[in-house]
Design a protein around this nucleic acid. Sequence first.
DNA 1: GATGAATGAGTTTTCATTCAT
DNA 2: TATGAATGAAAACTCATTCAT
Lengths: 190, 190, 190, 190
Amino acid sequence: MARTLNKKPEVIDAALTLFMRKGIKATTTRDIALRAGISEGTIYRHFDSKDALAEDVFQENLNYFYDYLKGYLKHSKDPENMLRAFVEGFFEFSRVEQRRYSFIMAAHQTELKQLSRTKMKPKRMLTKILQIGRKAGTFQYDDLELTGVMLMGMIMQTIFYLKSGHITVPLDNVVEEVFLSCLKIITNPK
Amino acid sequence: MARTLNKKPEVIDAALTLFMRKGIKATTTRDIALRAGISEGTIYRHFDSKDALAEDVFQENLNYFYDYLKGYLKHSKDPENMLRAFVEGFFEFSRVEQRRYSFIMAAHQTELKQLSRTKMKPKRMLTKILQIGRKAGTFQYDDLELTGVMLMGMIMQTIFYLKSGHITVPLDNVVEEVFLSCLKIITNPK
Amino acid sequence: MARTLNKKPEVIDAALTLFMRKGIKATTTRDIALRAGISEGTIYRHFDSKDALAEDVFQENLNYFYDYLKGYLKHSKDPENMLRAFVEGFFEFSRVEQRRYSFIMAAHQTELKQLSRTKMKPKRMLTKILQIGRKAGTFQYDDLELTGVMLMGMIMQTIFYLKSGHITVPLDNVVEEVFLSCLKIITNPK
Amino acid sequence: MARTLNKKPEVIDAALTLFMRKGIKATTTRDIALRAGISEGTIYRHFDSKDALAEDVFQENLNYFYDYLKGYLKHSKDPENMLRAFVEGFFEFSRVEQRRYSFIMAAHQTELKQLSRTKMKPKRMLTKILQIGRKAGTFQYDDLELTGVMLMGMIMQTIFYLKSGHITVPLDNVVEEVFLSCLKIITNPK
DNA sequence: GATGAATGAGTTTTCATTCAT
DNA sequence: TATGAATGAAAACTCATTCAT
């Protein structure tokens, strides 16, 4: 079937690795071509510009992350378990798929043009869980968005510091601790 | 005699604005010179390199932020009040000094060379508060670093989303909400 | 057996349109392939190079133009009528076959390699008419080439400005006016 | 006074020479830099883009041409003499300033972006002369624009063919012949 | 004949930094 | 100190042409 070669996957893969390692700006098309074992021109056969490539890589990885989390949540039934799975999945992904995770975060926060930053799918997953929990009477909170954001912040920031080696607690404990802190916020009466 | 005019402040001010707006990498020395109303060469009279300028701007703003928070905390006596002041101060600073705040965060997370990222002074303020609170018996938690990081994450992420206009709750309520959530984590029994 | 489809006409047609619109240099093989609905490689099955394609398109259109004028002149007998037919034919062609005309002119004046510019068939038609007219005693002029060139210039320049919309006189009047001006040059005594 | 070097004139001069010789498209910024004895970057210190440079060179030369013609016309009083001076000036310029003339014509017809083609100053000079002549009763014609265009066409086309060596008549005679032909068009009764 | 991915040499453009004035 | 023109290395991007399928 495949009549001709198609180096698009190689381009994307090389780009991901390098974007993650040095950031989008600091990665040159030459770097990408070199690592992909292709010529620079080939990049432009598949993408309109370096920015378009970055955008593409970002979306692809975001989807990958999203699917990863969905897989993690599949078997959870009650809200609390879903939340636990979400937190665990987040940490797990950041550990197993370091490259992807780092890239997603960096791109999300600063490197990408405003456009694509809009919808952070994983955050919407979390708010969904919170909604279900409130409906079930398990969770209590005032503002959905705000609560979601706070929990996301706890999780992401903890991972950020984990990566810089500033936390010495064993990983499992960290995850548990973060999960419990989440629970405290949404299950305790004021 | 001759009032040798010193353009350094102009340089720093222009750099700050631009770094914050477009990031360090995306800001050119030409941009800076243009906005500062000086020539490009002048930048190098005051700084060894663009990176050195960025580093300088970062430190200066971090100190400014730190001093700002210190002023906010001055009159708080008990740990809970200190924590409240800290959270309020953080939000207030991000509101009043938008440029500075945005720049500090962006630079902190991605753009600066590893060197200067090491010590995030405001975070150490927070851990200090947590320590005092634990000593006084007001706060309970297992790991100091981890807890500090989680609280920081909640605060920073909330501000991040506030800035993108995704939260519709009135600011005062948001601050109160975040503060209460912090309290829940460190004052509630498991 | 197999009706080996031949995409050559598509190539030529697409090339003509694009060459005319943006000039030869500014038209890429990619543009041509896209517009022709074929692949870039196919162009090289029919032409040795882009330049050869341009040359081909030029010749083909020049011949087309020439045949068009010949058809216009067929029924004219005396020199004056022939000249009138020539002028009318020129204007008519430029109107009905805009793409072809624009391309011929542009290519003729600047874009083609010296080679093919040599013989501008329509101009030789005009000089032929002038010769016949002189022999018949209808036209008077000193130098054949020079006179031909001047008349050509009047016609072509007028069409050029017509196309840019700078002339507001009705087309028929324009043609008549140009024809009369030609006549003045070759029928009036000094 | 001149405190620092300024290579802008060198850039323009080199560009003019090369644009004229090979056309704008075929001239690379590298060519220009090499010939100007500067680095490529310097071009961009003085012009936003290669296109902007071409535009600038075009305007400059058009003005130069215009001034040249004005000088030629200065001492002519009656319309007929003005017209003669105009025709002579045109031919003379094309001979003395070959580079400039060729460039102006090529750029005018195809190479420049639509924008700058709008106003062809010399043509407006000619229409001015025609107006004066009509007011003075010396010239007769119906449409000013159309007549101007036809005369321009005769002049330009003749020069074009002169350059390609297709005309063997001595230059002075050519000029005289063209001038007389112009006169015939605007001084003879229908 | 047709494809379309790949090429690579070449093009325009960018930008931190230097330096004569 | 301040200038601003100049630099040059490197960046993003282009495109006619080739070639395996």
